[in-house]
């Protein structure tokens, strides 16, 4: 266990191991999410309340889920950066923050478009939409701070502090936004909670959620590899890799 943990600190070892996992992640992720999406779009029954517009759920929920858990992962990586000063953790934060922004944007966009047929307006100051907007600001802050420092170490540790402060705040923000929402808006705007979602609906949803998690793993590994190549460019193994490895080695990371 501890040996694994120490190895994880070595960018070179991580580069190799990531390359071994990536094809599986990509394949399984694509398979699961495409199956789920096709199932959800073509075969799942219609919702009796919202009609066909509910089919947006099959991408809205996975992106929203993932956007939130990616922020949690970033905060955990921040703790690792501060406590164990592990390079790979910071590489993760750096590579994954833009992915988080894309996911948050997607969740916001799909939520807004879904709102039009359901609530009659593109943007409603709904508690969940507002929390996602705040999450977007948190992500942008992390990226902005990371780019503001030219020194990698300082940037890494500052971003780690910010991510941890943000994660402490997330429950407070969520609670306050819920509270504010019930204060300002009548409950009619709530998404109708379906107490018993039929299996033909939640199984494809689950497939897409799992698939997007795997795809996130792939893109995270891929971007981390790029970041490692950039940072370790003066080391011997990267030079050898670039000189001898050829395209396939660099593309899939030695798969």
């Amino acid at each position: 266990m501890w040996q694994f943990f120490h190895k994880l600190g070595s960018p070179k070892w991580f580069y190799g191991i990531a390359g071994r996992f990536m094809p599986w992640l990509l394949g399984a992720g694509l398979l699961l999410s495409l199956c789920g999406i096709v199932w959800g779009l073509l075969f799942a029954p219609q919702d009796y309340l919202q009609g066909n517009s509910y089919r947006i759920i099959f991408i809205h929920v996975p992106t929203a889920f993932l956007a939130q858990s990616v922020y949690m992962m970033i905060a955990v990586a921040g703790v690792i950066t501060l406590v164990w000063k592990m390079k790979v953790a910071d590489v993760f934060v750096r590579s994954v923050a833009p992915v988080g922004v894309v996911l948050t944007l997607l969740a916001l966009f799909t939520g807004a478009v879904w709102g039009k047929p359901t609530w009659g307006a593109y943007w409603v100051w709904d508690a969940r939409l507002t929390s996602m907007l705040i999450l977007l600001f948190l992500y942008l802050g992390i990226i902005g701070l990371g780019y503001a420092y030219s020194d990698e170490k300082t940037a890494a540790r500052s971003v780690a502090v910010l991510a941890i402060v943000g994660v402490v705040n997330i429950p407070i923000i969520k609670y306050s936004v819920d509270w504010w929402n019930t204060l300002h808006q009548p409950a009619t705007f709530r998404i109708t909670e379906k107490p018993t979602m039929p299996a033909e609906m939640w199984v494809p949803l689950l497939l897409v959620v799992l698939g997007t998690y795997l795809l996130f793993g792939w893109i995270a590994f891929y971007r981390m590899q790029t970041e490692i190549l950039r940072r370790e460019r003066r080391t011997r193994w990267v030079r050898e890799l670039v000189q001898t490895g050829g395209q396939s080695q660099l593309k899939t990371g030695g798969a």
């Binding site: 705040i134 705040n169 923000i173 504010w180």
Partner: peptide, 17 residues
């Protein structure tokens, strides 16, 4: 500018309450 980007999301609960 960066400071306001970092701080505003954290200020929201205080403002709401």
């Amino acid at each position: 500018v960066l400071l306001s980007l970092l701080v505003i999301p954290l200020y929201i609960p205080v403002l709401i309450f």
